[in-house]
Nucleic acid binder design. Structure first.
Lengths: 205, 205
DNA sequence: TAGATTGTTAATCGATTAACAATC
DNA sequence: TAGATTGTTAATCGATTAACAATC
């Protein structure tokens, strides 16, 4: 990564991507920052600022080529390369993620599902047998793992995260309701559903 | 709500609540903004600023009483009142949410599960029979619904959201990968998992 | 009382918006 | 060429951090 991109910008990129996907599907050929700003309810200025972080994708007097911009943002987001994902935790959330239809579409592939609980091991989820965590060291030796989705209860989550890190995994998609403290070179993306629900609760009370 | 609280502050409140829950469980009686800041990796200044939005919960020379602050934040987040939640979409994500163990704990109760797909209707999820969307109008007449969790594929989501709104539902916890345009008095809290995954993908590429 | 720590005001920093020269 | 729209610089706005008087 060249210059540092602010978290605020990063957070908006997937949303641009979603809108551009729809525009591509609708066979729209070009769009100006102004038109897009109306659809997305953000300022045109912000769109141009955000995109300019990554280079000039537009053309004066014309706007942006939809297909091209879609592909560029996909590339920025790393969607041009396949990512191998393992799921740790074969509960309801793990199952939901494993079955997530758009996974392949966005270039993510579930290559393994693991659990600590013996009653889960051996079950089949999404055509894949749940393996024991004991098998994980051997698995990571033989298979490159880009991302581990962590969907365990919070009691186990911290210890298992440490194990994942010790096995060399550099990215954790964390669904456990706990904050993980990780080394500098490990990236964590949190999905704290209870936090989200509490925010909603706040807004209605 | 008295004065306007910034989204940035609202977003941090559930995290404070989580840490205070742990402190309560650990039987810690009091904590200073400085101690808490070390645990949470935020500045003490921010903690004091955030909390002062809602009133003075601390005491000079003493800090904050953990139990009291926990309860105050719970009250701020609306966790002192039970919220009735219906789940729209009995797929994997709907099932995961229905089975989410901390729901009751945080004062949310699932009172109904609905789906449009006929193959889902009649199934039992978490001890509750999945009902047809056709039954929803009668249901909302007879039962007060605080929140609808929307876990449908994006094709249906927008139309169903409109239906929910027409039935008087004021809060939508939206898991569909689409932005909902809603009237002023309706609150939407988005959980865009694909956005989250793309952010992670960005950070590792 | 002396020490500690809050709540709040002021200073800084960063993010968003506005404006416009460059240019397709 | 004239009109449209970008990329970027400057201005504004908001959020975070620092500082400190108030006070337990």
């Amino acid at each position: 990564m060249d210059k540092e991109i602010s978290p605020a910008v990063i957070k908006r990129m997937p949303r641009y991507y979603r809108y551009l996907e729809d525009l591509v599907a609708a066979k729209v050929e070009r769009i100006s920052s102004n038109e897009l700003s109306e659809q997305m309810h953000v300022t045109a200025s912000q769109i141009r600022q955000d995109l300019s972080n990554f280079g000039g994708f537009g053309q004066q007097g014309y706007g942006y080529n939809v297909k091209n911009l879609h592909d560029e943002i996909g590339r920025i987001l790393g969607l041009d390369e396949m990512h191998n994902v393992i799921i740790i935790g074969a509960g309801n959330m793990g199952t939901a993620i494993a079955n997530y239809v758009r996974f392949e579409d966005l270039s993510f592939k579930v290559t393994g599902i693991f659990d600590v609980a013996s009653d889960k091991i051996g079950r089949t989820i999404c055509g894949r047998e749940v393996q024991s965590m004991d098998e994980l060291p051997a698995f990571t030796e033989e298979n490159h793992v880009d991302i581990a989705a962590l969907t365990l209860p919070r009691d186990n989550a911290v210890a298992v995260a440490d194990e994942l890190i010790s096995l060399g995994i550099k990215a954790i998609w964390n669904f456990a309701h706990v904050d993980l403290n990780v080394p500098e070179d490990v990236v964590v993306q949190n999905v704290h559903l209870s936090d989200s629900l509490m925010q909603l609760s706040f807004k209605i009370s």
